[in-house]
Amino acid sequence: MNLEAMTTRILLVDDDLELRTLLCDYLGRQGIEVSTLHDAGTLQQRLEHARPDVVVLDVLMPGVDGLTALGRLRTSGDDIPVILLTGRSDDVDRIIGLEMGADDYISKPFNPRELVARVEAILRRRRAVPSPAAPEQRKPFAFGRFKLDFQSRTLSVDNRTLILSATEFALLKVFINHSMRTLTRDRLIELLYGPEGDRTDRGVDVQVWRLRQVLEVNPSTPRLIQTVRGRGYVFVPDGEQHATQQPAVFS
Rank of each mutant, 00 (worst) to 15 (best):
S131W: 06
A170R: 13
R187Q: 14
R125A: 14
I83L: 03
G197F: 03
D58I: 06
H38S: 15
G28H: 10
R202M: 01
I189L: 05
H178C: 09
Q45I: 15
S76C: 09
S152L: 13
T200D: 00
L98F: 00
V206I: 14
D25H: 10
R126Q: 15
V55S: 04
M6H: 07
L162Q: 09
N177A: 14
R212S: 08
D201N: 09
T75I: 11
L115D: 02
H49Y: 04
R181N: 11
P81W: 02
A69Y: 02
F169D: 05
L155A: 08
V92A: 02
T167V: 14
S179I: 08
P237V: 13
P130R: 14
V55N: 03
G232W: 04
E4W: 03
D79I: 12
D90W: 00
D91K: 02
E33D: 12
V217F: 05
E216Y: 07
D198G: 04
T200K: 00
E120W: 01
V204N: 02
Y193E: 11
D39Q: 11
T184C: 04
R124P: 13
M6Y: 04
A166N: 12
L37W: 05
R125Q: 14
V174W: 03
E99M: 01
L224E: 00
T161C: 07
F143N: 08
I96F: 00
N159L: 12
T36V: 15
S251D: 11
D90N: 01
T227Y: 00
I83S: 01
D205P: 00
V59R: 01
D186V: 09
I122Y: 03
Q137H: 07
V174F: 04
N111R: 10
V249Y: 04
R153G: 08
I106F: 00
A142I: 09
F110T: 07
T167G: 07
D103Y: 02
P135I: 15
Y105H: 00
D238T: 15
